[in-house]
Design a protein around this nucleic acid. Structure first.
Lengths: 239, 239
DNA sequence: CGGGAATCGGATAGGGCTTTCCGGTTTGCT
DNA sequence: AGCAAACCGGAAAGCCCTATCCGATTCCCG
């Protein structure tokens, strides 16, 4: 209808930033940078529930400018967190390089939880799934594969309980997100204590039986649902 | 100005319900019951973020009727959850009656976390503080005292790690709330696995040192802040 | 059974959120 | 310098939230 409606989706396939795909006007390029920087700050401080308006305010651009660059909130989230997700995936590689399997395993868990603590938005992302953002999900899958390898080595070395599952990391990430969101910056190091308790429990030998972990499919479903309250205002019942 | 504006605050001092303080009209009494029953169902299913409108809809009363009975959302919350809070406080008494200190201790933790899982609203309440609701806070304090006693006995029996603190229960409740809110009913038993991991880690002997737990004051501050996004819609930034 | 007061409940205020519209401004190229 | 295309950003639409207003209804008591 309106010839003005050709939203700028030439920047990429909707995934991460191709950076210099096509030269845009200088002010557009500059504003894109300001927006991403602002979003990084705001999401990091307030989590993914921060409003688009607050991002625009922080970036000192109009709200419409924000939506022209990122037609949907999810696209902004992907643009902002693709690099953190890369760091997340790469952390498994570094953990696998550790000669001590147990040290690599525990170090990885602590590192990931520290990343959650350092960036409230990233903490949300790790417990959500965005089926539409292939770039993000591919990196998550990559990290998952690396973690599986990490688990195998730690079990083989006899230092990780045999009944530990990759789903237990997901549970820990969800639990950690709960502590982070509850304590906020009133108790910024509280999460370390939880992680320490859990890691000591992961250590072999087992101290007792455990209830079965949730199915992979169930956890995926939960993560997929969680991402649905983010783009549009809270419906008042989800969660 | 308007002679009709004398909102019914004769019901009490603004705290909990005095129940049968003053005989009201039969329809008022009936509606109060419907509202509380509806709120119990809605908060239990959707958590404290459920809207007042949804409670009114479930109760099949007008929105104004709801607000006349409970002028603020917090008052409704207090009225609905005071009995659950009593059960919470009483659970410590039952746990203390257990001849095996460790069994009493672990049973209590599992019981409380199960209460969180069974009622999403109560899960929220346990990680929040409502300084204005003396009744609720008194019960919480009572439970806290009982738990301290439980801790002492479990430590004396040599089955609980010496470095366990009452604050660790708060952390566990926050972590559990995180898992519950993330998994929803996609993985309704996932929380049991977290609790089992944690309890096994609490068991003596210690497997290693732990980072210091957060200060009591810091946790209280966090719980106090958390309760602020509940009565009015999320501001999106909250300082 | 009738009247007055207590109670009900839809409409409304006022604010936040995401997303769209469109007149005004800036940019880059000639 | 000049001009068209690209871009900006405030205002507004549409939805959900808490909380209030006020005409219509119901209850209770004499």
């Amino acid at each position: 209808m309106n010839p003005r409606d050709q939203h700028a989706n030439r920047t990429g396939t909707g995934s991460t930033a191709d950076s210099a795909a096509q030269p845009k006007r200088s002010d557009a390029e500059r504003n894109r940078g300001r927006i991403i920087a602002a979003a990084r700050a705001v999401f990091g401080r307030d989590g993914l529930n921060a409003s688009m308006a607050s991002v625009a305010r922080e970036a000192e651009v109009g709200i419409a400018t924000l939506f022209r660059h990122f037609p949907t909130k999810e696209e902004l989230v992907v643009a902002v967190f693709s690099d953190r997700m890369e760091a997340y995936a790469q952390a498994t590689a570094e953990a696998l390089a550790d000669p001590d399997p147990w040290h690599g395993f525990t170090g990885y868990i602590q590192e990931v939880c520290a990343m959650q603590a350092a960036d409230r938005g990233f903490a949300d992302i790790l417990t959500m799934s965005f089926p539409g953002a292939q770039a993000l999900e591919a990196l998550r899958a990559q990290a998952y594969q690396g973690f599986l390898e990490l688990i195998g080595r730690a079990k083989d070395s006899g230092q990780l309980r045999e009944d530990f599952t990759s789903r237990d990391l997901v549970l820990l990430l969800m639990a950690n997100a709960g502590i982070l969101s509850a304590t906020g910056d009133a108790a910024p190091d509280a999460w370390r204590r939880l992680v320490a308790w859990m890691i000591q429990s992961f250590q072999a030998p087992a101290r007792g039986p455990l209830p079965d972990p949730p199915e992979d499919a169930a956890l995926y479903e939960a993560m997929r649902r969680a991402s649905h309250g983010v783009t549009s205002p809270e419906t008042g019942k989800r969660r």
